[in-house]
Design a protein around this nucleic acid. Sequence first.
RNA 1: GCGCCCGUAGCUCAGUUGGAUAGAGCGACAGACUUCGAAUCUGUAGGCCGGGGGUUCGAGCCCCUCCGGGCGCGCCA
Length: 654
Amino acid sequence: MFQELEQRISAAVEAQLAASYDLSLSVSLEQPKQSSFGEFAIPVAFQLARQLKKAPKQIAESIVAGLGSIPGVAALEIAGNGYINVRLDRAAYAGSLLRPSSRAPQSGGKIVVEHTNINPNKAAHIGHLRNAILGDTFVRMLRAAGRRVEVQNYIDNTGVQVADVVVGFHYLEKKSPAEVKALIDRPEQPFDYLCWDLYARISSYYKDHPEALVWRGDTLNAIEAGEGEIAELAHMVADAIVAAHLRTMLRLGVMYDVLPRESEILHLQFWAAAFELLKQRQAIFFETEGKNKGCWVMPASAFKTSPENDESAEDDSKVIVRSNGTVTYVGKDIAYQLWKFGLLGKDFYYRLWFAYPDGHQLWVTTDRPQTDKAPDFGAATEVFNVIDSRQSYLQDVVVAGLRALDFREQADKSNHFSYEMVALSPRTCVEMGIELSEEDKRRPYVEVSGRKGLGVKADDLIDKLIETAQAEVDQRHAEASAEERRRVATQIATGALRYFMLKFTRNSVIAFDFHEALSFEGETGPYVQYAAVRAGNILRKLQERGESLPDFDAVLTSEALGRQLASEDFWQLLLSASKVNSAVDRAIASGEPAHIAKYAFQLAQAFNNFYHEYPVLQETDAERRAFLLWMTRYFREQLLATLHILGIEQPPYM
RNA sequence: GCGCCCGUAGCUCAGUUGGAUAGAGCGACAGACUUCGAAUCUGUAGGCCGGGGGUUCGAGCCCCUCCGGGCGCGCCA
């Protein structure tokens, strides 16, 4: 509703400008600095002042004079040096919220969002959580806006990291596949935790015994060949860890549609197809001299924006195929990106991995034809890759590859949804018993390292959050069953975690701190959940008293709404609660899930004010009581809708 | 050396395409529970938006420069 008015008003002003000045420009509306100025501010007179050589105020006056009445608008005022401030017809606005028209589903092609993408060789850590929660929330935002979205989680099951853990099992611990299988099935020590330690161990072993690196090479070869005990081990390890990651992410409500795997990219010759295309269209060339002699390279001019001279261009060019004929990671990534857009001329085979508790199906790629009929994956019109900002250079190369192949449109629709890393606050390092150098102690944060086994495991953090929330729930609701208290504590804990990961904008480094993350007060997920619980409590209490909600349509006539909304307080509350869709659009446009988190907090804050100021059930005036109840229900709906987009569940009580 | 990011209240962070008097949470201090259950609310204090120059009606935001911090720049992934 809010956006429709916004569009209607700017269209009216644009028409007026075209008629009286013969100008065609798009008029944008702003939110006035103070709410007392009205609902919208139009600064267009400032833009025109120079062009028309007139004072902004004069222009504004002439525009207002020329504008007829706009449906839904009560008044236009000139303010300051030339702002046009818009006041809405409050009763009409509220009336349209009371009888909402469903949001028109937007058309458009499929959007592929790739996120999570964790090496399947050890437990997920807090950095991975930021990736998955950002990606999942962005998906929810797009879906809330009516877009069709496919969620991919790429699995690098044949890479160095998996190989290293396999080296650990095979060479260091001399374990057979059967013995490793027993470890996977053992309930007392989670397998992903065991691999976390093993990976750190083999990494430090390489340091002291560089000759052991031949094991890695042999293992990689065995994995690629796909046969023998080592290949079997690699499959078992990767599959078990992927299963663990999926369980961890499901705890936070994160789900996927399809898992494209590196092994299929290899076996189905995706790279060969991409290589042919790249050669054919001369996007890469064979280097015959210099340091990259014998390699297929992409010239730096393809992906560097800076003005380059010819000498440095050669130095900076990116190797795609090594002189030994093997392809680099970026090369495979180009093939994968081409497949995402349906440009490769090849497809995977798919088999059902499992169905989530809610019935949603998760598919995985395979290299053999299957009897199951899978959905159509890939062939997107736009792609978002949720990847750490440290990989922006490689993402640039991938996009440059598409552009060099003359897939300009798809290159423009390839988005690196980048975010900064999650590091650890020095204080948290100390709490965890991690030894810091004097230099590190002075730093604002300390980087995590999988190789060193330095970091906070995702499941440990979630467990700790649940434990902390549980203590509060136990204290407040001793009467509830243990099982139920556990469920509520889990909802609060995961809500707190998701909100924590979303409250920062993407390019800010999070210095993870247990004290902050475990907080349930102030700008947190539980604060928002609590507001929705309170709204629910009022409605529940009403029923417990044997009353039911009034017939809002009948009681809240246009006149009644006008009377109640004459109160500036009520009007501002209603207005802020009505902006969910507007917040979603803004957050999508800027690519910032943090904007939704911020909006959720403001909405909750507004409701908590309302809750404190107006005892709804004590109200005796029938019309006012009906109005307050309607506001309560409306706030609850809007809070729940916003929480859903953030992927935060609503506890029945707190 | 080259490229990208960051610097806003004691701390952690917001700040819409440049717009009216720069905001929030935490922390500090002072208050509010016989209630719709206080994981809440109200109030106070706290700012040369890193420094300097420029662009214009107008700059936290754009340009230049300097200072401080981070991350990239491999025939690793």
